[in-house]
Simulated assay, not measured.
Amino acid sequence: MRRPRPRALPKHGRAVVVTGASGGVGRATALAFAARGDRVALLARGREGLAAAADDVQRAGGEALAVPVDMADAKAVEDAAQQVADTFGHIDIWVNNAFAGILAPFTEISPDEFRRVTEVAYLGYVFGTRAALRHMLPRDRGTVVQVGSALAYRGIPLQSAYCGAKHAIQGFNESLRCELLHRGSGVRTTMVQLPAVNTPQFDWVLNRLPGRARPVAPVYQPEVAARAIVHAAGHGRRREYWVGSSTAATLIANAVAPGVLDRYLARTAFEAQQDGGVAEAPMGAGNLWTPADGPHGRDFGAHGRFDEESRQGGPQQWLSRNRTRLGRTVALGAGALAARRLTRLARR
């Protein structure tokens, strides 16, 4: 016997957890939830960034709880989730977004470095999801949002560790989604596949390229990603959202002609991930082993150095959010045309 459908989450004042919330997409997402009046728990390692993010959340109209935690530490993540539940009473939404990465050829990445990226960018999502489900399943309600990337389907050169993590998240999330559907659970999980985003990560990522690291154009502002994540959190029945026309184009091209895309990226993606400047290494290993703001006492915020070229959105976001409605409209239109044609044929 199927369980009754759980009542919808309240539109405002929800208890939300955002990992990787001290900067970039996580920071923008926390502010987007705060603007709705939600209570937002901010999870990240960097205390300077967390403190600044908490202030921003409060000014945006939300309630903030800053929890320093390394997402690669499963026990620490469980403890952080319990702290959130003790403070807010429960957890309605959990957004997995924590990041670590390396820009380098695979042969120039050490085993320990590769393992560390995997622990943060993949296992951090696994541990976060597990902690969220511990609090959501007994209530039979809640949504877990996995922040992904076009790279969850299409690997590119120089980011083997990160691409591997995103591919792993995709498979893990699909497996979990099937299990939740099988048990008739009211808990939802969905994934948001992002394009290149203008975040500070390109100034703190471990970079072994001759030029300064940059995202592959076109680049979108982090608020575009944040809006999609907030929407996905309120519509968890959808299995996946694509953000940006470049994400859609990449995933379609990879499905149709992956071998051609291999050769295209081999020719273009090395230069596309570097700008004209000489690579700088002000933070050594970047944020791989320690938070980027730790020894520097600096808040990086949500935006990187690519504001002038970054896009604020586009029609693809509307199409992604309204895919079901659009599909029904197209189907009705096609049905009407077919019926009219059949009527004309019957009269002959």
Rank of each mutant, 00 (worst) to 15 (best):
Y162M: 03
A196I: 03
A279Q: 13
A51P: 01
F127G: 00
R238S: 11
Q159S: 11
T199N: 06
R45W: 07
R47Y: 07
V224F: 01
S149D: 07
R116F: 03
N207Q: 04
H182V: 12
Y220V: 03
E48W: 07
I102A: 00
R267G: 04
S310Y: 00
N198W: 03
A104G: 02
A269S: 14
L345M: 14
V69P: 03
P215G: 05
A339H: 05
M136Q: 06
A336I: 13
E271D: 13
I93M: 04
V144H: 04
W318I: 12
G301E: 00
A334E: 12
G13E: 00
W289E: 07
R238V: 13
E308W: 10
A249K: 13
E78T: 11
A334T: 14
P218W: 05
R340G: 12
W289H: 09
G297S: 06
T29W: 02
C178K: 15
R212A: 07
E108C: 10
W204Q: 10
H231Q: 09
L345F: 11
L50H: 02
R188C: 06
F306C: 05
I252G: 09
R212I: 02
L265F: 13
E174M: 11
A281Y: 05
E223C: 10
R347Q: 15
D262I: 05
T268G: 02
V260F: 12
G142E: 00
V57G: 04
D86F: 08
Y264L: 14
T329W: 15
F300S: 01
A72S: 13
D92R: 08
V95C: 04
R14L: 08
R344T: 11
A98C: 06
A334G: 10
Q83G: 14
P218M: 09
V69D: 03
A74L: 07
G46E: 03
D86Y: 08
Q83A: 14
P4G: 06
A150L: 15
N254K: 03
S110E: 09
A331F: 14
Y220W: 08
F106C: 12
P258C: 06
M1W: 12
A248L: 13
D86K: 14
R305Q: 11
